Amino acid sequence: MSKRCLIIGASGEIGYSVTRTLVEKGYRVGLQYYSNLRRIEKLENQIPAGQFLGAHQADLTTTEGIQAFLQIISKEWEAVVFCGGHLWKGLFQDMTDAEMDELYHVHLKAPWMISRHVLPFMIHIKAGNIVTVSSIFGEEGASMEVAYSSVKGAQISFVKALSKEVAPSGIRVNVVTPGVVATKMNNMLSPEEWNTLEGEIPLGRAGQPDEIADAISYLLSDQSSYVTGHVLRVNGGW
């Protein structure tokens, strides 16, 4: 029977591409989304009935929202991909406590709690895969994105540490760090800013969501069977 993969943040551009890619690879998929029901319905129409394990709306910006989500989803998954997240851009001293809490919950506490939810089953079957989508800014840091860079960096540390802890149980944990990707998150950039940014990238262009999805598919596949605790940079050389 095909493997089951839970995709967090499936309605975003990267999550959408990851879902389509994994379905093509034969995975059965369960989807989490926050608000974009129309996009999830469009995605569901592209998934064969036998491979669709349901879509669940959940607000992961609070502990209560994460707990409510965990109460309605199975613990039995062979793979989990964390694609969810949102950007906060501005001067660090202007951030509110609420904005800090939202970034922390979505990018850190949700992966912690969801991983804890699925790990007992993975340990029982002596197999499993967890992949997190972090960011180049989690490695390098970015002005005006201080808190975002912080939680993305913490995701990388989480992956490195957890991979060591669960490797004896046959579970692999890895992280992808995209550079600039052509998603709605970057719509705030003017054409001039976008051209300048792409000019800094050695490959001369932004990445596409499908290219991130391909990297994630690789990390979930048997082709990467000896890869764990790895930071896969998908950034065009930036």
Rank of each mutant, 00 (worst) to 15 (best):
R4V: 00
C5M: 01
C5L: 02
G9T: 04
G12H: 09
G15F: 10
Y16K: 09
L22T: 10
K25Q: 15
Y27V: 11
G30S: 15
L31R: 13
Y33N: 08
L37E: 13
E41S: 14
K42N: 14
E44R: 15
E44L: 03
N45W: 00
N45S: 15
Q46D: 13
G50L: 03
Q51N: 14
Q51S: 14
F52C: 12
A58L: 09
T62R: 07
Q67G: 01
S74N: 10
E76L: 02
A79N: 11
A79V: 11
H86V: 07
K89Q: 09
G90C: 08
F92Y: 13
D94Q: 13
M95C: 07
T96W: 11
E99T: 12
M100R: 12
M100G: 08
L103C: 01
H105N: 15
H105R: 05
H107G: 08
K109Y: 07
A110I: 06
A110Y: 03
I114V: 15
I114A: 02
S115P: 04
H117I: 09
V118F: 06
V118S: 07
P120N: 04
M122V: 06
I123M: 14
H124Q: 14
I125L: 04
K126D: 11
G128H: 04
N129Y: 00
V131I: 13
T132N: 07
F137Q: 09
G141E: 07
S143T: 10
A147G: 01
V151I: 10
V151S: 12
Q155I: 11
Q155D: 10
L162P: 03
S163E: 01
S163T: 03
K164I: 03
A167M: 02
P168H: 09
S169E: 12
S169A: 13
G170C: 11
I171S: 07
R172A: 06
V176Y: 09
G179F: 03
G179I: 04
N186R: 00
N187V: 00
M188A: 05
E192C: 06
N195L: 12
E198A: 12
G199M: 03
I201F: 05
L203M: 14
Q208G: 00
P209S: 06
D210K: 14
E211D: 01
E211G: 04
S217I: 02
Y218S: 06
L220P: 05
S221V: 12
S224L: 03
Y226H: 12
T228P: 03
L232P: 05
V234N: 06
